[in-house]
Every structure is written in structure tokens, then in C-alpha cells.
Amino acid sequence: MTAATPDDDADLVLHAEVPESGDGKRLDAVCAQLFADYSRSRLQAWIEAGRLQVDGEVVTRCRHPVTVGARLRLLAEEIEEAFTLEPQDLPIDVVHADRDLAVIDKPAGLTVHPGAGQRDGTLQNALLHHFPQTAAVPRAGIVHRLDKDTSGLMVVALNLKAHARLVADLQAREIRREYEALVQGELISGATIDLPIGRHPRDRLRMAVVEHGGRDAVTHYRIGERFAQFTRLDVRLETGRTHQIRVHLAQLRHPIVGDPLYGGPLRGSGLEPELREALRAMRRQALHARALALVHPRSGAEASWERPAPEDMQMLYALLRRFAPHGA
């Protein structure tokens, strides 16, 4: 069975392939199996509203029989949370703010959006407090996401017009996002990774490089600094799939140091005890969104911001320079 996979960062366009067990069954029953996050009645309403395609054709009959291998594309709608999202006076690092947008330097450990497992204490709660006008903007103006344990720069729209413009620019790949990552192993040179990403076929918490049904994903990287058995990379996203950098670098067998989901056991032989202990103590992926560049939605002028990696990553760099200089 091909599981439902997100179309983009919004996770609202889902894809799935009809398995053998669904051959000949009615469409709504198969959708209830493949898109299990939604109730059958909600799925029926979406089908009847023309929000589901079968092999590229809109089908509005819930009783429509499907065949094995048929490709489904569902345009799901945001489901309003059953709880009220409250503003919270949480500290956030505002790098820039004007009447249209704000740029935030998100710390590692801060969740961006509330979800079933966390209803408060998120960046979205903080934005509603610090920028009350974002209550009128989808997701409190958050245009793109960072994983909970990835640090760095994010842009937030402060009104609907700015939100529409920034979302369009993001989809057109006109917002430039640059990261730095500390990875295991020594890379020789920079390159581009062009491998499709979709939901892992067995583990719903993970993403993976998939041959069929994945979304296009392009990551550019170059060497930032070489160490013995480790490398700091400068990374630029062309697309923005969930966990993209983490998945792509793990696929190269150079996972990000500290990544609890894709990193695997720490590699490296003959490491000094102090360095080995610090590397093992890194409980989050050593990934930081360092730079952000965009066209301002009101003025049309180019704007850019940059923030250095936080202290936990800087400490690792210092230890690597001390104990594992390249060529030592």
C-alpha cells in the first residue's frame, strides 16, 4: 500500500495509491482506509465537493468503484482545532519587524504549530501575544516551518496581503533559505541532491527518499569547514519538503550530528573523550537556518537577514577545531 503523503509544506494536498485490498471497492471506503486522519463523513463531503481526483480526473460519486494502482489526490481542508489557541507571553528573538512582516530567530526546542500532542507553548502562541494582529492571518502569519529542534530564521506575515504575497513567493521558490549543518563523515566537495521525498512506507513519523509517489526535492550544499571525520556544510533549499535536509543528507550516508530520527549511532574512531562526550550530548540535529532573503511584499525591495548558529553548535565547532582539525 502506498500511504498518503503530503504535497508540500502545508500538508493539505495528499496523495495515495489504491492497494490490492481496495480493488473494486467504493471510493469513499478506500479513502477512509488511506486517509485515516479524517472521518469518513468528512471525506464523503470532500468527494462530493469535487476535492478528490482519481488518476487526474475529478470524481464526485462516493460509490465510484476504484481499481488497484489508481492514484488518488485529495485536496484536504484545514480542520479547525477543537481548542482555542491562546496568546502566550513566551520570549522570542525578533530580528526584524515592520508593519507587514517579522523575522524570528527560533531557538531549538520550540515547536512552531500546536498539534494533538502540544496545544500551547508554541511559536504560534507567542506570535499571537507579541503581534496580536496575526490573529486575523492564517496560522498567525507563519509562512514556512522549521522542525522543533532546528534553530534559525523564519519569516512571519503580519497581515493578509503580506501573507498571500509571501506564500506565493515561497511556492515560486523566490524566498532564499540557507542553513548550516554539521554532518558525520568527510565530504570532498559540494553538490546538488535531487531526490524525491515522501512519507516513509512503514514509519509515519519519518520521511524518506521514495522512487514512486514522492514530491520533487532539491537541496544544494557546499563545504563550509572540514574536520577530521566531520564536515560543516552550507546548505540551500530549492524546495521545502518536510525534513528535507535531514533526509537528503542521511541518504548520502552523511547524517546530521545529533539527529534523533535519521542520524543513527555516532560514528568516528579515535575521538578525544571530551569531543566524543560533546557529540553524544548533542540531543538535537545540528542544523541552523542561518540566512533568509526575500522581496519585501510592500516595497518590492530585496531584504535579507543572517544569524550565526547558536551556542550548542558553536561549541561543537570549537571542539572539532581543537581536537579534530582537518588533515590531523
Results as ranks from 00 to 15, higher is better:
115 G>S: 14
107 P>H: 08
165 R>A: 12
36 A>P: 02
141 G>M: 07
192 T>Q: 15
76 A>V: 03
26 R>I: 11
165 R>C: 07
79 I>R: 12
73 R>L: 15
309 A>D: 00
166 L>I: 01
7 D>M: 01
5 T>N: 06
197 I>G: 00
106 K>D: 14
198 G>Q: 10
273 P>T: 14
312 D>R: 03
242 T>I: 03
237 L>M: 11
180 E>W: 12
227 F>I: 15
221 Y>Q: 13
249 L>K: 06
75 L>H: 15
229 Q>H: 15
260 P>D: 06
210 V>S: 02
19 P>D: 13
311 E>G: 12
262 Y>Q: 14
201 P>I: 10
105 D>K: 05
99 R>C: 00
136 A>E: 15
214 G>W: 01
11 D>F: 06
289 A>Q: 01
166 L>Q: 00
280 R>S: 09
192 T>H: 12
308 P>K: 08
41 S>W: 05
2 T>A: 05
161 K>W: 12
25 K>N: 07
228 A>G: 09
108 A>D: 05
214 G>L: 01
140 A>D: 12
12 L>A: 15
285 Q>N: 13
189 S>T: 14
214 G>H: 04
78 E>S: 03
236 R>K: 06
127 L>K: 11
130 H>W: 08
198 G>P: 06
321 R>V: 04
178 E>K: 15
121 G>P: 02
26 R>G: 11
190 G>S: 09
188 I>W: 03
135 A>S: 12
31 C>E: 11
219 T>E: 15
284 R>H: 12
278 A>E: 04
54 V>E: 04
160 L>S: 13
195 L>S: 13
99 R>Q: 03
308 P>G: 12
221 Y>N: 12
283 R>C: 03
193 I>R: 02
264 G>C: 15
21 S>P: 03
36 A>C: 06
162 A>V: 08
209 V>Q: 00
111 T>H: 10
279 L>C: 12
116 A>G: 08
231 T>R: 10
299 S>R: 07
286 A>I: 04
290 R>A: 08
299 S>Y: 05
